[in-house]
Computed example of a mutant assay.
Amino acid sequence: MDIKIRKLLPNESNSYRVLRLECLKNYPKNFTSNYQDEKAKPKLLFQPYIETSDLNNFVIGAFQNNNLVGICGFNRHERTKVNHSGIIIQVYVNPEYQGNSIGLNIVKSTLDEAFKINGIEQIEIDVITVNKNAAKIYEKIGFETYGIQNNFLKIDDSYYDHKMMMIFKNQV
């Protein structure tokens, strides 16, 4: 399987939107965003960043034959006292392509790009605890758990816990 991994280009904003909405629709327990809420927005969080090639906020994509099959976003914290850090969010690989280390590779590529940004020293990532495969990938890369937030998500009458993880530049 020939997969290319790179930053999304400005003209790929709509491809990102399609894949992002797909993941929210198909895996509601794995993401804090809600499909219906996001679908109603004219632009999703990363679309303006993709369209302007923002250096501090970007999406790494996995492509097969120019089709976007995986995404991983990086968002640098803006406030002065915390802008030495950022967060990886919206990690998703289309189910047809899961099990081929694509998730691992897009998270690693996102870390590589993020740590190139002047001043970035640490990066966090969060995972809903029922998403055990994602947690294993993050641990394999070197992320370490620093906390669990109980009952973080509430979907209907069910609650889901949230694992918070961190990696430092000198660990990569």
Score class of each variant (00 low, 15 high):
67 N>I: 11
106 I>C: 03
31 F>C: 04
101 S>N: 12
47 Q>T: 11
79 R>F: 15
79 R>H: 14
82 V>H: 03
38 E>P: 04
111 L>K: 02
155 I>E: 09
45 L>Q: 10
30 N>P: 01
47 Q>I: 13
47 Q>Y: 02
93 V>L: 00
162 H>N: 12
79 R>T: 11
152 F>G: 03
136 K>N: 10
112 D>L: 14
57 N>A: 08
60 I>T: 09
161 D>R: 06
121 E>L: 15
159 Y>D: 08
100 N>L: 09
130 V>G: 05
160 Y>A: 09
149 Q>A: 13
38 E>I: 09
49 Y>V: 05
103 G>E: 00
119 G>L: 10
48 P>Q: 07
120 I>L: 05
54 D>R: 09
81 K>I: 10
114 A>P: 00
99 G>I: 09
122 Q>L: 12
155 I>S: 13
68 L>G: 07
110 T>G: 07
33 S>Y: 02
22 E>P: 04
29 K>L: 10
66 N>T: 12
45 L>F: 11
23 C>I: 03
106 I>L: 05
32 T>W: 06
124 E>L: 10
77 H>C: 08
47 Q>R: 03
150 N>Q: 14
137 I>C: 07
156 D>H: 06
68 L>K: 04
77 H>K: 15
122 Q>I: 07
90 Q>E: 14
71 I>N: 00
110 T>S: 12
147 G>K: 07
141 I>P: 01
75 N>S: 13
22 E>F: 13
129 T>A: 03
93 V>A: 00
73 G>L: 01
48 P>K: 09
89 I>N: 05
83 N>H: 08
66 N>R: 14
30 N>L: 05
53 S>C: 08
151 N>T: 12
155 I>Y: 11
95 P>G: 03
84 H>S: 11
34 N>D: 12
86 G>E: 00
97 Y>L: 05
80 T>I: 11
157 D>W: 10
114 A>H: 01
138 Y>C: 10
44 L>S: 06
72 C>Q: 02
72 C>L: 09
78 E>P: 02
123 I>G: 01
84 H>A: 04
63 F>T: 07
64 Q>T: 10
128 I>Y: 02
154 K>E: 12
103 G>C: 01
72 C>I: 06
34 N>M: 03
43 K>N: 14
39 K>C: 07
128 I>W: 01
58 F>V: 08
41 K>M: 13
38 E>R: 03
42 P>I: 13
105 N>G: 03
100 N>K: 12
65 N>E: 10
56 N>G: 14
74 F>M: 04
154 K>V: 06
131 N>E: 09
25 K>M: 11
152 F>H: 15
24 L>A: 04
78 E>Y: 12
124 E>Q: 13
65 N>F: 02
113 E>T: 14
104 L>M: 14
88 I>P: 00
150 N>G: 12
119 G>D: 06
29 K>C: 09
116 K>F: 06
118 N>V: 12
132 K>V: 15
54 D>N: 15
147 G>N: 08
113 E>H: 09
82 V>I: 14
65 N>V: 03
122 Q>Y: 05
145 T>W: 05
